[in-house]
Design a protein around this nucleic acid. Structure first.
Length: 470
RNA sequence: GGCGACGUGGCCAAGUGGUAAGGCAAGGGUCUGCAAAACCCUCAUUCCCCGGUUCGAAUCCGGGCGUCGCCUCCA
């Protein structure tokens, strides 16, 4: 099935048409490693993970590149304030970033190029822009001349002539010809890390790194470019301007942007005290699996209202899914395979794919999943499963979990050897059943209470007692 | 000032011209020695307000109210 996406460039939904059939080149704007990632950043990375996994679900081979911005104003300032070298300063944040991705089970990209390792490519691209008359040098800095680019701003639709100039433009800049021009190369300032260039020592501007690295790994033209909505202008407009002016070829074909998340209805900010990193939430005892579920359950083009209540609701939704898996494991198979089960499994995998193909409609995809859960519960309840049905259902669930990555609790639990073993627990459960059979309810309730204290949940059913850790 | 998004049941959230998905919560039922857990069922004549177009609108158009984002290095 051919997926359709809302392309920011043109602002309409269009069918994906990769340059190479069956293969997708994907560039995703990565983190600036001056701090731990906050949940807003992670929403975007999770959206990109879902995109990547969805494309793979639909049969595409995806080549994903995500940059690490390890040199810019913030990293330089941070390193300076900490009295560290740039690398020394960014390294722990890079490590922290990869930890967070692993915690949320984000599938790694094939490449994570770092800006500081690609300065040569950026210089080369800048030289090309100068040679073509799209950029000019001024006191050791190089600027992109916006007036030289006919369709500048085509992504955001911003009319540059109308842009109100902020006060800070003047402060950081170095005498541009036109106040709207943006910097490609910054002349060295005292105390900043520098690289040698044809214009003297300096460091790259921010926008140029994504152009240089995306084209290096994916070619001058590639299929999809992603980022947060805040990057549309100016970052992505500038990338397009630089890249297309330098190569004369179209840059990324499809642009996908994820909306921001807000916290308890308000913009997340440190001053409001509602600013959270993933590590903050883990420290509060929040379940990373529920966070992945929450962050992926809302359409990426919709603002996501992140609340503690919503984390709880996500956890409850997961418990329902876990319960289904649990029932499945204890269900008895008898007789021939049920045609209804095969039909449901078929429906799940195809309807789920159709929802993904519709601009990553995860809400619809989850509705398909819950419909499947309910229907298979009914089959289990009325008459039970036939030979091979359990495996059939588990296989279908594993298929959709290639995208969701939240369905299998065993992938998430850190093995804790705390408490009694399964065998011990089973022994007490058996003993309680025996007491119940001889109607010694005092004894059976005593055992039930003891197990409850160990947060073992019992489920008495007509087929016997099942138990699970709560 | 410019550009853009959004407003759907108690909460979260799909649906963008054909008569309101799904999750959480809530209520009822089944099961049970009693419970618990679980499962099943029920739960918006209506989609911020007012006009208009249409056989038909939550969906399109106009106006209003409200919330929010971007406007030179914030995902």
């Amino acid at each position: 099935m051919t997926p359709r996406f809302f392309n920011t460039l043109g602002r309409r939904v269009e069918a994906l048409a990769p340059a190479q059939a069956g293969k997708v080149g994907l560039y995703t704007c990565g983190p600036t490693v001056y701090n731990h990632a906050h949940i807003g950043n992670l929403r975007t990375f999770l959206f990109e993970d879902i995109l990547r996994r969805s494309l793979e679900y639909l049969g595409y081979e995806v080549h994903q590149v995500m940059n690490l911005t390890d040199v810019d104003d913030k990293t330089i300032q941070g390193a300076h304030a900490a009295g560290l070298g740039l690398d020394e300063y960014t390294e722990p944040f890079i490590a922290s970033f990869f930890e967070d991705l692993a915690t949320l089970r984000v599938q790694p990209a094939q490449e994570y190029p770092r800006a500081t390792h690609h300065v040569a490519e950026m210089i080369e691209l800048t030289e090309e822009l100068v040679a073509r008359g799209h950029a000019y040098e001024k006191e050791g800095s190089v600027f992109f001349r916006i007036a030289s680019d006919e369709d500048y701003g085509k992504l955001s639709g911003v009319d540059v002539d109308q842009v109100v100039q902020g006060d800070r433009v003047a402060s950081d800049e170095y005498g541009k010809d036109d106040v709207r021009d943006f910097v490609l190369w910054k002349a060295a300032k005292p105390g900043e890390p520098t690289w040698d260039s044809p214009w003297g020592p300096g460091r790259p501007g921010w926008h140029i790194e994504c152009s240089a690295m995306s084209m290096k790994y994916l070619g001058n033209s590639f299929d999809i470019h992603c980022g947060g909505v805040d990057n549309i202008f100016p970052h992505h407009d500038n990338e397009i301007a630089q890249s297309e002016s330098a190569t004369g070829e179209p840059f990324a074909k499809v642009w996908l942007h994820s909306e921001h998340l807000i916290v308890e209805g308000q913009k997340m900010s440190k001053s409001l005290g509602n600013f959270y990193t993933l590590k903050d939430l883990l420290a509060l005892g929040k379940d990373p699996r529920a966070m992945r579920y929450l962050l992926l359950s809302v359409n990426y083009r919709q603002k996501l209202n992140f609340t503690f209540e919503a984390i709880e609701a996500s956890g409850a939704a997961l418990r329902r899914l876990d319960e289904h898996r649990f029932r499945l494991q204890h269900a008895v198979e008898s007789g021939e395979a049920k045609p209804r089960v095969a039909e449901l499994c078929e429906g799940l995998t195809s309807d789920f794919g159709a929802a993904l193909a519709d601009d990553l409609n995860l809400s619809a995809a989850l509705a398909v999943l819950f419909g499947f859960i309910k229907e298979t519960n009914i089959v289990i309840e009325s008459g039970g499963l036939g030979a091979g049905d359990r495996e059939r259902i588990l296989t279908a669930l594993a298929r959709v979990d290639q995208v969701l990555a939240v369905l299998d609790p065993s992938q998430w639990t850190q093995a804790s050897a705390e408490g009694p073993s399964d065998e011990e627990i089973q022994g007490w459960v058996d003993e309680r059943d025996a007491a119940r059979r001889r109607r010694d309810f005092a004894r059976s309730d005593e055992l039930r209470d003891r197990l409850a204290e160990l947060s073992i949940v019992l489920e008495d059913t007509p087929d016997g007692t099942r138990w699970k850790r709560g």
